[in-house]
Nucleic acid binder design. Structure first.
Lengths: 222, 222
DNA sequence: TGCAGAATAATCGTATACAAAAATATAGGT
DNA sequence: ACCTATATTTTTGTATACGATTATTCTGCA
């Protein structure tokens, strides 16, 4: 049987990868059955997802996947534009050859996923690149916050991004790595700001709803 | 009977005002009794407080008020040093005479509380000044995050600050207001950074433990 | 046929029950 | 008297039960 941290991870993954699209209802007993636990445990992870704004709960009406407003989408990206460049000096300070190797490998993975058209993996890897970078800084509080913002960005892209906008920006993550290798702090900061502004500008409306979801099947193959 | 949002607020207030000191255990049934609800509702707010790092829960051992490590204390203040000055340009843009009046009144309250030696009110007002300022910016996500950091700062000061360090910095909040009135963005940013650096430097060790708490009495007089 | 209102079903909110784990108290032996 | 092992109590973790609220279906009437 699964621990609730794992259930949280699975649900979050399903949400940010758009397997559970914005607006999708999350009935407690269906989920409880799918994960083989009682409603008590499900409520716990739903409450957490609600605090982190991945789902919205309405009193006596249950929870559904958050469908971010355009305002919320912009605030998420603006937060990242403000924060992530500020972490670069710290990242440069802690940057090692080992880090470089790890992140170059990740970029390769990203490119591969893009070429194969694996959308959900592409979304996941793009977010991962950014929040693992933030984790190199000496501030775990800000790193965690950036991680949350990256996941929320994935949700935003699921709601507003075109298929192209999810992947088109991933190709140039390597450029940032080169700047970090060269310890070009100012340029790396500038790159990060421009990069995130591009992502922000790429979100365009694309509203679509989905059919009923078979929770049992969805979570058994993860 | 109280809603869980109110219970959350009361517990948070008790924690940041040091009425429930760092390390204090939070037994579920005692709290449930004190608030006149079942353990289910208490667990919900404890889980929220845990996600926000105000309490720590250990598996099968229950929850206790977080006793921030020195590293955590520094990270909280460093986060604020990074973030709050960045919000100033937005704040200056939205700054109105109405805001000015409100915040000058708050500074008066702060000074009054300091003079009277009302420590917990002083702590509360200092945090409030900062997070209400952040709320003027156009980014509610960052504003909420700053609010959380301000409350965590209060907890940090409860653990590491001397009595003096809590209040000594509040006298000069008026200086910032003058800079905002004059729309001196750059100077206001600089002021904020210096202000927070002073707060960070003021934390010194002061470890003390407390006796058993009577939850029933504590929450009835709030 | 279409709509209003009542009956039914589904779903949520909260308390309670019970099992598992930890903390504490007790008894026995050196 | 002190340490250790066992028994008791306390406290947490999880499931379940039940009332309350919302959603859906069904029926009767215009």
């Amino acid at each position: 049987m699964l621990k609730d941290e794992q259930i949280y991870q699975k649900l979050l993954k399903a949400i940010v990868e758009h397997k559970l699209p914005p607006g999708e209802r999350l009935p407690e007993d269906k989920l409880a059955e799918a994960f083989g636990i009682s409603r008590t445990g499900i409520r716990k992870v739903i409450q957490r997802l609600a605090l982190e704004r991945f789902v919205i709960v309405e009193a006596n009406k249950g929870a559904h996947v958050n469908r971010p407003s355009r305002q919320e989408a912009e605030e998420v990206l603006n937060s990242r534009i403000l924060l992530e460049p500020q972490l670069i000096p710290d990242i440069v300070n802690n940057w090692t050859a080992k880090h470089a190797k790890h992140f170059y490998a990740m970029v390769d993975e990203e490119n591969h996923a893009d070429e194969q058209g694996w959308l959900s993996q592409s979304i996941q890897l793009t977010a991962q690149f950014h929040y693992e970078l933030a984790a190199i800084s000496n501030n775990s509080i800000l790193a965690e916050f950036v991680e949350q913002l990256c996941y929320r960005s994935s949700l935003v892209l699921a709601a507003y991004g075109s298929r192209k906008s999810v992947s088109c920006d991933s190709g140039d993550h390597a450029e940032l790595l080169a700047l970090l290798d060269a310890r070009e702090t100012a340029q790396a900061q500038q790159w990060m700001e421009h990069h995130l502004i591009k992502v922000k500008q790429s979100i365009s409306l694309d509203g679509n709803d989905c059919a009923q979801i078979d929770f049992q099947r969805l979570f058994s193959e993860m």
